[in-house]
Every structure is written in C-alpha cells, then in structure tokens.
C-alpha cells in the first residue's frame, strides 16, 4: 500500500496525542496553571494535528461532516465520533486542571477510555480490510494501542513507561513475524484472482495498460521494500529500546523530551513500514504480489 505521508503522520501523531490525553484524563499528572495548560495543549495539539493531517488525504474534504453519519457500519465514521467525543469530553477536565476548578475526575476517566477507543477505531479501519492480509489481524489494534499507551506513559513521565516501550518492541516483532506469512496464509494467487487456476498456471502476458493508474499507485506500492529489514531495526531501536534506556538515565525533563523525540521517529518508521509492506490482493491481477 502507498505510504501516504498524510496518513502516516495522522495515525502516528493522533495515536500519541490520544494516548497522552488518556493519561492526562486519568489524572496520571495533576498539573495546575501554566504547566497544566502546556501539557493539555500538547495532548490536544498532537491529536488535532493528526486529525487535520488526515483531511489532506481526502479528495473531496468539503463533505467531511457527512463522515459522522455511518457509525453503524463504518469504522472510519466511528473514529470521527470517538475522536470528537474525546476532545469535547476532556475539555472541561483540562479547564478544571488549568484553573483549579476541582471538577470530579470521573469525567476524565471516561474521556481517557474514549481516547483509547479512538485509537482502537483508527486501528480497526485497517484491521477490517480482508483484501490486505497483513493488516487483517487482531495484532493490528494491539500494535496501535501499545503505541498509544507507551507514548502516553512516556510523555506523562510514568516510572513504568520503559516497560511499555519494551512491550511496543515485542508487539512490533510479533506483528512482523505474523505479518510476513499473512499473504500466503490468505491463499490468494493469480489463479484464484482470475479463476484460471481451474485451467492451469497463469502468468501475465501483457499488462492491461502500459501507463500507471490509481490502483498501481495506491495499492501496488513496491518502492523501498528492499530496505525493509534495515528499517525494521531502526524502528525497533528508536521506538522501543533507545527511549526506554534514555528514560532510565537521570536526565529529568530533558530525558523525557529526548525519549519522546526518539520514540516518535521510531513510531513514524514503524508506521511507514506498516503501509509500505502491506500487500493488497489486487496486485495479483498485475502479476505483483504487492
């Protein structure tokens, strides 16, 4: 699948933002005044920046409000609802923290759960797609949630954030291990795609069109896969191991900032791979497993 920068930025930043908002909502940090303003602004900023980035992916954004209508069937529509509900529900909690209004924490706890719900709906948009076997697995939402929880714990300076960061690494390893065999397990070949397996073994004689098209650009992405192994190592070190080690050093707030920067870079590499390595079955018609 084509790793569009808007979608990579969207899912990574909003995942981190909603993860952090969840911890703020749960009261992991109880800041006040300017400190509270800056922390909540960081959470909202990441989440909203991610959502805005996603609108750059739309061909016809003027209809974006209609995306709230199909929550009964569409995970994308559910994501629209959960994200907006989270941002609205946590707003009074944020104001309460900033101005010391002393609102009950229950609202924050519900908002925190909704924030994780948002991350889950994002993940389900990908996990539901049967035509991309690598994504169509319960490990996809596990990975998205692991990133959100680890990122949130890191930004809110939890002592056990390094454990969650290492868990992200373990989930990534599992995702890659399971994902590498997913296409073969789905059992689709050029033979089943065309039904010509009942005759013999098909191969492409002539392309359907000599120039590119939307399908090939969007779903039959092959560029850059040769660096996949290197990128996996980079993602693993940056997203998981390096920030975990940095957090264990006595660097205080700077340590958290450095660990967050490393983790974000690693998360972006992992998300790039999530798209670039995903193969769509439509590639079978074009003779590409990709």
């Amino acid at each position: 699948m084509h790793p569009a920068p808007s979608v990579i930025l969207f899912s990574t930043l909003s995942g981190l933002g909603f993860g952090f908002l969840a911890f703020l909502g749960w009261g992991a940090l109880t800041p006040s005044g300017w400190a509270a303003f800056l922390l909540w602004a960081l959470g909202y900023g990441l989440a909203v920046a991610g959502l805005l980035a996603s609108t750059f992916h739309l061909g016809n954004p003027k209809n974006a409000l209609k995306a709230f209508t199909q929550w009964r069937t569409s995970w994308l529509s559910r994501e629209a609802w959960t994200s907006v509900a989270t941002l609205l529900l946590l707003a009074p909690v944020a104001l309460s923290d900033i101005f010391g209004l002393g609102l009950p924490r229950l609202l924050g706890q519900i908002g925190g759960l909704l924030a994780l719900g948002t991350v889950l709906t994002t993940a389900m948009i990908y996990a539901q797609i049967k035509a991309v076997p690598r994504w169509h697995h319960w490990l996809t939402p596990v990975m998205f949630l692991a990133f959100a929880l680890a990122g949130g714990a890191l930004l809110s300076g939890r002592a056990w954030a390094p454990v969650l960061l290492l868990a992200v690494g373990a989930v990534l390893l599992a995702v890659w291990r399971v994902g590498d065999g997913a296409f073969a397990r789905a059992g689709q070949t050029m033979g089943t795609a065309t039904g010509l397996d009942r005759l013999g073994v098909p191969s492409v004689l002539d392309p359907a069109h000599t120039a590119g098209n939307y399908l090939k650009r969007e779903m039959i992405f092959v560029v850059g896969r040769k660096h996949a192994v290197k990128l996996r190592r980079i993602a693993l070190v940056l997203a998981s191991a390096a920030p975990a080690v940095v957090l264990l050093l006595p660097l205080g707030g700077w340590g958290i900032a450095l660990a967050a920067a490393l983790h974000l870079a690693g998360a972006l590499s992992a998300r790039w791979l999530f798209f670039a390595e995903a193969e769509h079955v439509v590639g079978l018609y074009y003779g590409a497993r990709g």
């Binding site: 992916h57 739309l58 016809n60 399908l215 969007e218 439509v282």
Partner: peptide, 19 residues
Amino acid sequence: ACIGCGLCAWACPYGAREM
C-alpha cells in the same frame, strides 16, 4: 456525498474502484 478518502478502493479485492 463522497469525501474521496479512498477506503472503499482499499476494501475491494478486485480493484474495481478508481479515484
């Protein structure tokens, strides 16, 4: 009513939809 998100094209195994 289409927002051009492209998700339906991803969901189709047959490449039947083009933006």
